[in-house]
């Protein structure tokens, strides 16, 4: 199958394929980050995570339309405002959902799963009613179009690079919040021992609400970043939810580093396999490998030995 290519061509193909893998990696990391907080730290299965992402995407789309219509001169920078709005919108919805739904179900994880699935159906329908069933794409500012020429035969799209940089920044921010900030310490204290944390004066209810909100807000930012590389429809979120959960579980639910390593290995496996076979078979084999490894090592790649 390599007969038609020269060595140089093959090299470039591998590099570009690797780059495609990196974009997929960014996508997984962005989606998984929010989930890693909600599932990894709180143990809540949020099946509506994808819909929180899509909310961010729609907010971005609306912002871009507004800028185009009223502030065309500032259009090249709309994205940064859109991202903040996406974070706020998804985060606020997340806190509302925690208050109305999730907090009643902390002791019943399987029921949370069903309830949030119901929520995801309702959100999908809401998006369909408000934004229409068709997928929408945002207008990219001029500077994000085109591609960077690395060598003669290797080109990488600027929007892809941008999303990757964004992923790195968001990851660092999340890591900082979780591991360095006072609030992050409170979150981890509540995770490790809810009763003790309550006893030393941490308002566990508030911590829960903000943690859930933060996870959803990050999902919103992820959705916002997505608009740079793809279009958005009411059911786009559902496409990714299982992949995202696998990424988080495969990484060992409680570890940020694990999530990133797992996103990397899954995305690279998939994009490499895609080079040899059809996309669907590549996906099947990747998922099979993940599920197979999880059966052998249920605690995931990086897991703490915790008391059951």
């Amino acid at each position: 199958m390599f007969g038609d290519y020269s060595i140089g061509d093959l090299g470039s193909i591998f590099v570009m394929q690797g780059f495609a893998g990196l974009i997929l990696f960014s996508v997984y990391v962005l989606m998984a980050l929010g989930l890693a907080i909600i599932f990894g730290q709180m143990g809540v299965i949020n099946m509506a995570h994808g819909e929180f992402m899509i909310l961010g995407a729609y907010v971005t789309w609306m912002t871009s339309n507004l800028f185009q219509a009223y502030l065309p001169s500032l259009f090249s920078g709309y994205f940064f405002l859109a991202m903040i709005l996406a974070f706020l919108a998804s985060g606020a919805l997340g806190m509302l959902v925690e208050w109305g739904l999730i907090r009643h179900l902390y002791k019943r994880p399987l029921d949370t799963l069903l309830a949030t699935w119901g929520l995801s159906l309702m959100l999908q329908q809401a998006y369909r009613s408000v934004f229409g069933a068709r997928e929408v794409g945002v207008e990219l500012p001029q500077w994000m179009l085109g591609s960077l020429r690395v060598t003669d035969s290797i080109e990488v799209p600027i929007n892809g690079v941008f999303v990757m940089c964004l992923t790195v920044l968001i990851t660092i921010a999340v890591a900082y919040v979780l591991y360095m900030s006072r609030w992050g310490r409170q979150v981890r204290a509540v995770v490790q021992n809810r009763i003790m944390a309550g006893a030393v004066g941490i308002n566990t209810e508030k911590v829960d609400r903000y943690t859930f909100g933060l996870g959803c807000g990050i999902a919103g930012v992820a959705g916002s970043a997505f608009t740079m590389i793809g279009s958005t429809g009411p059911t786009s979120g559902q496409l990714y939810i299982v992949d995202t959960f696998l990424v988080v579980v495969f990484g060992g639910a409680a570890s940020l580093l694990g999530t990133i390593a797992s996103a990397f290995s899954i995305s690279q496996t998939q994009s490499t396999l895609e080079f040899f076979m059809s996309g669907s078979m590549a996906k099947v084999l990747t998922l099979l490998a993940v599920v197979g490894i999880l059966m052998l090592r249920p605690q995931g790649l990086f897991a703490l030995k915790v008391r059951k």
Binding site: L113, F245, S280
Partner: peptide
């Protein structure tokens, strides 16, 4: 492996079989 992990894995199996 039980509870939520099992639920997620079975869901992944459903996804795999459909794609296949």
């Amino acid at each position: 492996v039980g509870g939520t992990y099992f639920a997620i894995i079975t869901q992944a199996v459903a996804a795999i079989l459909t794609i296949l």
